[in-house]
Every structure is written in C-alpha cells, then in structure tokens.
C-alpha cells in the first residue's frame, strides 16, 4: 500500500496526473484492461494454466510470451487466469467486509451509547493488528481454500469500513437536515437509510477501491505463504512463491510477471480510489 501511494505521489509531482479525472481514467484503464484480458484468456492463449506443456523453465519466447515454470505451465496463461482468482477473492472479500462494516458503523454511530462502545472496542482491537498477520491467523485456523481466503481477508477490512462509517455517521447525524427529518417525524431507520447512508456513500466508494488495492497485496501475501487457494489453481501470489526459489538460478520470469501484475492491479484500484475521492469531494471555488 505504501509503495502504491509513493508511486501515486511521484506521478503527481511529476505532473503526469495533474487532475483527478486523469487519475481516475488511468485507474479505470488499468483495471478494465486486466479484467478484459482475463475474461478473454481462452482466446489469447492456447495453453491451460494447470496442464504442463512439457517445456519446463523455458524463457519468454514467441511461443511462451512469459516463459514456462518448473512444471512446464505456461506463465502467460497462469497470469491471465490468475487474475480471475485474485479478482474473485479480493472483490468478494471487500464486498463482504463492506456488507458487515457499513451497517455496524451506521448503528454504532447513530445510536451511540453502550452498543457503540461494545462494537468499537472489538473493532479497534482488530484494527490494531497488522492486516496481513490477522489474515494469516484466520486463514491458518480455517485452512487453505478460496472461500476461507475470502473470509480471512473480509474480516481484516471490516474495521476500516466501520471506523469510517461510524465517524461520518456521527458528523452527519448532527447536521441540520437530519434534525429537519426528525422534525418531519421520520423514524430512525428512515433517517439512517434516506439521510445518513446516501451522504456517506461516496466515501464508502472511495474506501472500497482503496481497500481492494490493499486487499490485493494481502491476498498475494496470503497465497505466497500458502494460505490461499491450493495449487495448482493459478494465482499470482502462489506463483511468486514457486518462482522465488528459482530466482537466484536466473529464472527471473517466474517472479517478474506475477509480481508486476500484482503491482499493476493494486495501483489501478488505488488510482481509481484517489480519483474518486477528488471527483466526489471537489474543493469548491469561491466566487466573490
């Protein structure tokens, strides 16, 4: 995440991404590009990602644009199909944590009191763990599978949504239009769904895309350590793990391409998040 932010900052200072729209567009192009490539994978490559070609540790060539690995799997296929795995895990996990964190934050922030304190303590203690370590612990307990990876990552990001939504709810709650709704006779549930939630939705969207970027790195970490999808399912993190033992022997393509994809996809989502946050909260220009 820090690396991604650093790159964003660098790009901004270089003046390459001057305005928010450019950020957003760049992000969309990267993400959409990867999604399209992975969807079209069967058309783009003749090889299956989980069947050996018989050609082991072949360097990149016209036949194998990204080379092959120690089992003779075509790396290009694995990178393309791997995107499907990564996107499935990461998007479902983030959606799941959003589905838990947002309502909790709304309830906590709106009603306050004991409920709020109880939820906050749980969330804060979860937030205190570094995300990868927490995810690892959960995945280790649940075992390595696609579903468990989703759950492990989802749990990690619930506090992010909770804290943001709770904070926003607290401030929106004190605004005049919420008071006006109360004066109209609106019930609590109506105020939450019609007045509070729509006004924090933009921030949720920003956090959503930022979180995906972060979750991509967490997922990569999980599978690098063997706690995500079991082999031979194509997955960038898993490929990194396989590749890193061959790296010193000079088989750089085993690590370079999956690693590059992780960076690229995470940057793409981070760009979308940055762009969205600028687009949704434009600094108003004062006219005298």
């Amino acid at each position: 995440m820090n690396i991604v932010n650093a790159i964003l900052e660098k790009l901004k200072t270089m003046g390459l991404l001057r305005n928010s729209n450019a950020l957003f567009k760049a992000g969309i192009i990267i993400v959409a590009g990867i999604i399209i490539l992975s969807a079209l994978a069967p058309l783009l490559t003749p090889y299956s990602p989980i069947v050996g070609t018989g050609d082991e540790l072949a360097p990149p060539s016209l036949k194998h644009p990204m080379g092959t690995n120690n089992l003779g799997y075509d790396m290009f296929s694995r990178v393309l199909y791997g995107a499907r795995t990564v996107l499935t895990v990461v998007v479902s996990a983030t959606l799941l944590s959003m589905a838990i964190g947002v309502p909790l934050g709304l309830i906590s922030g709106y009603y306050g009191g004991k409920v709020d304190r109880a939820i906050s303590i749980v969330m804060d203690s979860m937030y205190a763990f570094p995300s990868l370590i927490l995810a690892l612990a959960i995945a280790a307990v649940l075992g390595a599978s696609l579903i468990n990876a989703i759950i492990a990552i989802a749990v990690v990001y619930v506090p992010t949504y909770f804290r943001m939504v709770r904070g926003q709810t607290l401030s929106i709650k004190s605004l005049l239009y919420v008071e006006a709704a109360r004066a109209l006779g609106a019930s609590d549930s109506r105020i939450i769904t019609r007045y509070v939630f729509p006004n924090l939705l933009p921030t949720v969207l920003v956090v959503f895309s930022m979180n995906i970027a972060d979750a991509i790195l967490t997922e990569a970490g999980l599978s690098f350590l063997g706690f995500s999808v079991p082999p031979p399912t194509p997955d960038w993190g898993a490929d990194l793990r396989v590749g890193h033992s061959f790296m010193l022997a000079g088989y750089w393509w085993l690590v370079a391409f999956p690693g590059l994809m992780i960076m690229l996809l995470a940057t793409g989502f981070a760009l979308i998040g940055e762009g969205l946050s600028d687009i949704l909260n434009p600094r108003r220009e004062a006219v005298g």
């Binding site: 605004l175 005049l176 239009y177 008071e179 006006a180 709704a181 004066a183 109209l184 006779g185 019930s187 019609r194 007045y195 729509p198 006004n199 939705l201």
Partner: peptide
C-alpha cells in the same frame, strides 16, 4: 411525538443545511 409532528413543523434559518443534499 411522531404523529404530532404532522400538526407542527419547523422552518430553520439555513435552508441549504436543512435539505438533504442527495435528495
């Protein structure tokens, strides 16, 4: 109070702040 609110209403000083910006 909710049913009574039908009979009594309040208009605030700041019209912008009293309207939900997303409605």
């Amino acid at each position: 109070l909710r049913p009574l609110r039908r009979k009594m209403q309040i208009i605030f000083q700041d019209p912008y702040a009293s309207l939900n910006p997303r409605m």
